[in-house]
Simulated scan of single mutants.
Amino acid sequence: MANAKRVGLLFGIFLTILGIVLLTRLSANYFWSIFLILLGLLFEFGVLGRGAGRFVPAGILLVIGVVLLVCNIFGYDKMNYLWPAFVFAPGFGLFQAYLVKKSKRLLTASIVLIVLSVIFFTAAFFHVSWARMLFGIVLVVLGVVIFIKSLRSRAE
């Protein structure tokens, strides 16, 4: 699809959503969350982007758009529980890219982010105090592993 056609498509969607927001007197916050969801769908269906890489921004935009829409509807105090979705969003996009490319690196990265988000969701929903200690342990282990790998690469 030509760039001019894509720009026209995005501009048309933008104006349509803005018109709906103005006509229904919705808050502009609804506009941005719906715009992010629609932009994510444009990536999903290949209107924007090509190949498996388009699924990463698609997943991120869809998840963040849905989280913001939920917060607009039910209140931003729900962000106390929904913030781990920001860790989940790139994991979701990477997993979609993995389903297309079948790359083990994409799968590994997506699993790490999704598992972290599950841990954070659990901590947020159940107000688990051990989550801070667990996250600290994960960071220390990750830091030591990276440090040891960098020492080994210098020795070689």
Rank of each mutant, 00 (worst) to 15 (best):
G65E: 01
R25P: 04
I73V: 12
V112W: 03
A155W: 09
I60C: 02
K101T: 07
V138N: 06
L48E: 01
R154I: 12
L9Q: 00
I114E: 08
Y76D: 08
G143W: 08
K5W: 07
I20F: 14
I146L: 13
L22C: 04
L99K: 07
V47P: 01
V115F: 13
L113S: 05
G8Q: 03
G40K: 03
G19Q: 05
G51N: 01
L15I: 12
F125G: 14
G143C: 11
W32R: 07
V128E: 13
R25L: 15
V145T: 03
L41D: 04
I73G: 02
N3M: 14
L36Y: 09
S153C: 10
L151A: 08
K78F: 14
I114S: 08
T16Q: 02
W32F: 15
V21A: 13
F86K: 08
L68H: 06
S117W: 00
D77L: 08
F35G: 15
V138W: 06
A124D: 05
C71D: 13
V138K: 04
P57R: 05
S33Q: 04
L68N: 07
F35T: 11
G19C: 11
V66C: 07
F121H: 07
T122P: 02
F121Q: 02
G12W: 00
I114T: 06
M79E: 05
T16V: 10
F121W: 11
I146P: 05
I148F: 15
A109F: 10
W83H: 09
G46R: 04
F88W: 09
F74P: 03
L15E: 11
L113W: 02
L9Y: 07
A85S: 14
I111N: 03
F120Y: 15
R6V: 11
T108P: 00
I17G: 02
L48P: 03
G53M: 13
R50G: 04
I73K: 06
I37C: 10
H127S: 13
Y98T: 06
